[in-house]
Simulated assay, not measured.
Amino acid sequence: MVSTAPTAKFGLDSDLIFELWPTSGIDEVQAVIRAVYRQVLGNPHIMESERLVNAESQLCDGSITVREFVRAVAKSDFYRARYFESCAPYRFIELNFKHLLGRAPLDQTEIAEHIRICIEQGYDAEIDSYINSDEYQNNFGDDTVPYYCGSSSQIGQKQVGYNRTLSLVRG
């Protein structure tokens, strides 16, 4: 099922939250697949040969959750080549936050922690650190496609995090 939410809830690009339900039909699943590619890959044109046919099939038949499909896309060769191998480490971390948590890093400490994970534990552990996080679980759970949720200021949030999110979403 695709549920709508007020634009003010999360900001700039869309007014839809994509979520799968046990009763979702094939059209809803296809909409979720497109939304995951758009969010995680940054909306590039995906050629048929670059699609994750096996993971898409597993999502369609209910063998994996949206969360696991997001993980598969983020660990794909396409994502790795586009954002890990061709970007500076700082930019890679920044884009992971944008694509997987829907926000920018809040401060340099957060960036340093993720660079450390990437260097010490590797690419897969870096991707898993976002998707396995409490923040991901609390914001998106197993059945919701990540969306930009850091574009509104929140009580206790540093202004720099809000500013970074706006610059990432717009730039």
Rank of each mutant, 00 (worst) to 15 (best):
D27P: 01
D27R: 06
Q30C: 04
Q30L: 10
Q30F: 00
A31K: 03
A31W: 00
V32R: 01
V40R: 02
V40M: 05
L41Q: 11
N43W: 00
N43L: 06
P44H: 03
H45C: 02
H45N: 04
I46H: 02
I46F: 00
E48I: 00
E48D: 10
S49H: 06
E50C: 02
R51P: 04
R51E: 13
L52I: 04
L52C: 06
N54K: 01
E56M: 03
Q58L: 11
Q58V: 01
L59F: 01
C60M: 15
D61I: 01
S63R: 07
I64Q: 05
I64T: 05
T65I: 07
T65K: 06
V66R: 03
R67L: 10
F69D: 09
V70T: 06
V70D: 11
R71I: 01
A74P: 10
A74W: 01
K75T: 05
S76Q: 02
D77F: 00
Y79E: 08
R80C: 14
R80S: 11
F84Y: 13
E85G: 08
E85N: 12
S86L: 10
S86Q: 15
S86A: 15
A88W: 12
Y90T: 12
F92A: 14
N96L: 15
F97T: 12
K98H: 12
K98T: 09
H99T: 08
L100R: 05
G102I: 06
A104M: 11
D107I: 04
D107S: 15
Q108G: 12
T109K: 02
T109G: 13
T109S: 11
E110N: 07
E113C: 01
I115R: 12
I115E: 15
R116S: 13
I117Q: 07
I117D: 09
C118I: 05
C118F: 12
C118Q: 11
G122V: 10
Y123K: 04
Y123H: 09
D124M: 04
D128I: 00
Y130K: 08
Y130Q: 10
I131M: 13
E135N: 04
Q137H: 12
N138R: 14
N138I: 09
N138P: 04
N138L: 12
F140E: 10
G141D: 11
D142L: 13
T144A: 14
T144R: 15
T144D: 08
V145N: 08
Y148I: 13
G150E: 09
G150H: 05
S153C: 07
S153T: 01
G156R: 10
G156V: 09
G156L: 14
Q157R: 11
Q157K: 07
K158I: 09
V160H: 02
G161K: 03
G161I: 02
Y162K: 08
N163P: 02
T165D: 12
T165V: 03
T165P: 10
L166K: 06
